[in-house]
Amino acid sequence: MKSKEIQELVLRLYNDGCGGNEIHKSLRGLISKRTIFYWLKSIKATGTIQLQGPPGCPMLVRSKGLIQKVKHRLSNKKPISARSLAKKLNVSPM
């Protein structure tokens, strides 16, 4: 099952009057209890399961175009530091 389908199933079971433990038993361990109770908390607060993006820093952007630009700049005879190159290309130095 896809995550969206599981979320809809949990929402339907909750609206039918099932509790968190009953939902976990009916799903036979497909989703952890912690996740189910997190979703139920979201349902009680907003009426739906609204998942946020992953926590932490955003992913690094590695496109073919950017990789080619970096390779081209590094192939020059004049050495350049990674930090200054990142500033020039307006990207993260990591």
Rank of each mutant, 00 (worst) to 15 (best):
Leu74Glu: 04
Asn90Phe: 04
Val61Trp: 05
Ser81Met: 02
Arg12Thr: 14
Leu27Ala: 05
Lys88His: 02
Leu30Ala: 05
Ile67Met: 15
Ile49Asp: 07
Glu5Cys: 08
Gly20Phe: 06
Lys77Cys: 01
Met94Pro: 10
Ile49Asn: 06
Gln50Ser: 05
Ser75Leu: 11
Gly17Thr: 00
Thr35Phe: 02
Ser42Val: 06
Asn90Leu: 14
Leu51Val: 09
Asn90Ala: 13
Met59Pro: 12
Leu40Glu: 02
Ala45Trp: 04
Val10Pro: 04
Leu13Pro: 03
Ile67Asp: 15
Met1Val: 06
Glu8Trp: 02
Tyr38Cys: 05
Pro54Trp: 00
Ile36Tyr: 03
Gly20Val: 03
Gly29Pro: 01
Thr48Ser: 05
Ser3Lys: 12
Gly29Lys: 09
Ile80Ala: 01
Arg28Trp: 12
Arg34Asp: 12
Leu89Tyr: 12
Arg34Lys: 15
Gln50Pro: 00
Phe37Thr: 11
Pro58Lys: 07
Gln68Pro: 00
Thr46Gly: 09
Tyr14Asn: 15
Ile31Met: 08
Gly19Trp: 05
Thr46Cys: 06
Gly20Trp: 04
Leu9Arg: 10
Leu74Ser: 01
Lys88Phe: 06
Ala82Met: 13
Gly19Val: 01
His24Asp: 00
Leu74His: 03
Lys33Arg: 14
Leu30Pro: 01
Glu5Trp: 06
Glu22Asn: 06
His24Glu: 03
Lys2Ser: 15
Lys44His: 10
Arg28Leu: 10
Leu30Asn: 05
Leu74Asp: 03
Ser75Ala: 12
Ser3Glu: 10
Pro58Ile: 10
Val61Pro: 01
Ile49Ser: 06
Arg62Asp: 07
Lys64Trp: 09
Lys77Met: 02
Gly56Arg: 00
Tyr38Gln: 07
Met94Asp: 13
Met1Phe: 11
Ser81Trp: 04
Pro79Gly: 00
His72Ile: 04
Pro54Cys: 04
Gln50Glu: 08
Ile67Gln: 15
Ile67Glu: 15
Ile43Leu: 12
Ala82Arg: 15
Ser3Phe: 01
Arg28Pro: 04
Lys77Val: 03
Tyr14Pro: 05
Leu85Phe: 03
Thr35Leu: 06
Leu9Tyr: 10
Lys71Phe: 02
Lys25Gly: 05
Arg73Asp: 04
Lys4Glu: 15
Arg73Glu: 08
Leu89Arg: 11
Gly17Tyr: 00
Gly29Asn: 02
Leu85Ala: 03
Gln7Lys: 13
Lys41Gln: 14
Val10Met: 04
Glu22Tyr: 02
Ser42Gly: 03
Phe37Cys: 01
Lys44Asn: 08
Ser32Met: 05
Glu22Ser: 08
Arg28Met: 10
Gly47Gln: 06
Met59Phe: 10
Lys44Arg: 12
Leu51Arg: 14
Ile23Gly: 09
Ser63His: 07
Pro79Ala: 04
Leu85Ser: 08
Met94Asn: 14
Pro58Leu: 08
Gln52Gly: 12
Arg83Gly: 09
Met1Ile: 08
Lys33Ala: 02
Lys71Ile: 11
Asn90Glu: 14
Gly47Tyr: 01
Lys25Ile: 02
Gly19Leu: 03
His24Tyr: 14
Ser26Met: 12
Pro79Ile: 00
Leu66His: 14
Tyr14Val: 10
Pro93Tyr: 08
Arg62Thr: 08
Leu66Tyr: 13
Lys4Ile: 15
Ser3Met: 07
Cys18Asp: 00
Asn90Gly: 02
Pro55Ser: 10
His72Val: 00
Leu30Ile: 04
Arg62Phe: 07
Glu22Asp: 12
Lys87Cys: 11
